[in-house]
Design a protein around this nucleic acid. Structure first.
Length: 419
RNA sequence: GUGAGUGUGGCCAAGUAGGUUAAGGCGCCAGGUUGUGGCCCUGGAGAUCAAGGGUUCGAAUCCCUUCACUCACCCCA
């Protein structure tokens, strides 16, 4: 039997309510913050991500779905949202409009990795990018935007962790200092950290092994190595976050996997015990547009994993509003009544009422049973007696009461309308 | 890519010192009620026990291989 490919899943009707809630909140909050929606293709030129995310990052090295099309073009299934949006920014000449540009998206991403809890080969991210402005109030805006979205969909018990990893001036100096520090501890490091020392130095700070944690605690503090501009930017951001009373945790070990990040990086994680994975992450990428061939342009954005948000909504047992609208089943008995049933169903639907025709091969008892099992609120019963008298029986399934009424579709609509 | 755990009808599962027809529950279908649901009762359908190979008179059960799923690591939303 065929199965959905590893790390992908079907979103069945019962789960769609979560996606409706998320989509509704995405539109609402994005409009409140003044961001415009952008949809980019699922495929992009493979080079976009090599240049954008970084050749040596794990995502590009081993996690992209990359293939040649029939025209020999090397294409990649989008693994993240920021690089394509920067591409679109340049392609459509947005640098010529008034800056900054505010964009948001809600799109599937693809990464070839081993699936586990909250990690899939196809996952959806809601993200936003603010391009063309470096003032720290924009950093504050982006963080508030992500934070408020998560609050709005109903999540609580969240931590906001922030850090600054410097810019192209001060970051290399810090990395050199860090390398020098670590070089005297190479015998005490775990295997992964030995590798990190070479190709992902900042990540050394993020190791969870106890032996490495000791070394981390005495490592030089990145915040002490920020250049004056970065330091001022960082301190202003903290003030702005205080202005809007957004509680943050400074985590100097917070570093992120993409090469393009500069200055501000942040993550939002649930406080739930055991779950350390971020449901939202983002940061500033002041060098990215230039790296992609554009002018020197600052930018900052976030990505929120929708599947992780839904997991957390379920974890926190957030109540999901139910649809209380009336749902009608028309039970019909015999061929003659079927004609009437079909036309009444059609009429009710045209008037916005959810209507399902009962399985006419079954007797009345089975049709009522069916109505109960699918959650109908009312059943309209049409049999030979009703046809003869030009009447209908309408039965309320929650109270169990029923009435015989004249067959007047307009009256039915009045009775069954939800408002 | 590395490590651990788990695979028995659509779903949840019992059964593993090998032994005749592989429990049970949910769900599904039908009857009890030929025109009245939810509860109840009765019956029915549905399983090459993940797949392949091996050991054995005999394998869901023991051995080997493969695959899938889950969790963790790397990394990430």
């Amino acid at each position: 039997m065929y199965k959905s490919p590893r790390g992908t899943s079907d979103i069945l009707p019962d789960d769609q309510i979560y996606w409706r809630i998320l989509n509704k909140n995405i539109e609402k909050i994005s409009s409140e913050f003044g961001y415009g929606r952008i949809d980019t293709p699922i495929i992009e030129d493979a080079k976009l991500f090599v240049r954008g995310i970084g050749k040596l990052t794990d995502i590009v090295e081993k996690e992209t779905y990359t293939f040649k099309d029939r025209g020999d073009n090397l294409l990649t299934l989008r693994p993240e949202g920021t690089a394509p949006i920067c591409r679109a920014y340049l392609q459509h000449g947005m640098q010529n409009s008034t800056q900054p540009i505010r964009l948001f998206y809600m799109l599937p991403n693809f990464r070839y990795e081993r699936p586990q809890s909250g990690r899939y080969r196809q996952h959806h991210q809601f993200g936003a990018e603010n391009i063309g402005e470096s003032d720290p109030n924009i950093d504050c805006e982006i963080i508030e935007y992500a934070w408020r979205f998560l609050k709005n969909v109903g999540l609580s018990k969240l931590n906001l962790e922030i850090n600054s990893i410097g810019d192209k001036q001060c970051r290399p100096k810090y990395i050199t200092t860090l390398k020098e520090y670590y070089n005297s501890y190479t015998n005490d490091l775990c295997e992964d950290c030995i590798r990190r020392l070479e190709n992902n130095t900042l990540r050394l700070l993020d190791c969870k092994k106890t032996e490495c944690k000791k070394i981390i605690s005495k490592a030089p503090n990145n915040l002490d190595y920020l250049c004056d501009e970065c330091k001022q930017h960082w301190e202003l951001l903290l003030l702005y976050l205080s202005d809007i009373k957004l509680p943050y945790i400074i985590n100097r070990r917070l570093v992120r996997g993409f090469d393009y990040y500069t200055r501000t990086v942040f993550e939002i994680t649930p406080k739930t015990i055991g779950s350390t994975t971020a449901i939202a992450g983002g940061g500033r990428y002041d060098g990215l547009i230039e790296e992609l061939g554009g002018p020197e342009t600052p930018g900052i954005g976030f990505g929120i994993g929708m599947e992780r948000v839904i997991l957390e909504l379920k974890n926190q047992s957030i109540p999901i509003p139910k649809n209380n609208n009336n749902k009608i089943l028309i039970a019909n008995l015999g061929l003659k009544s079927k004609h009437t049933a079909i036309s009444i169903a059609s009429f009710l639907r045209k008037n916005g009422i959810t209507t399902i025709l009962g399985p006419s091969s079954k007797n009345l008892r089975r049709q009522l049973k069916y109505a109960s099992s699918i959650g109908s609120t009312h059943v309209i019963i049409i049999g030979d007696d009703e046809i003869q008298k030009n009447k209908l029986i309408i039965k309320n399934l929650s109270s169990g009461t029923q009435d015989s009424i004249p067959n007047k579709p307009n009256d039915l609509v009045k009775m069954l309308s939800n408002n």
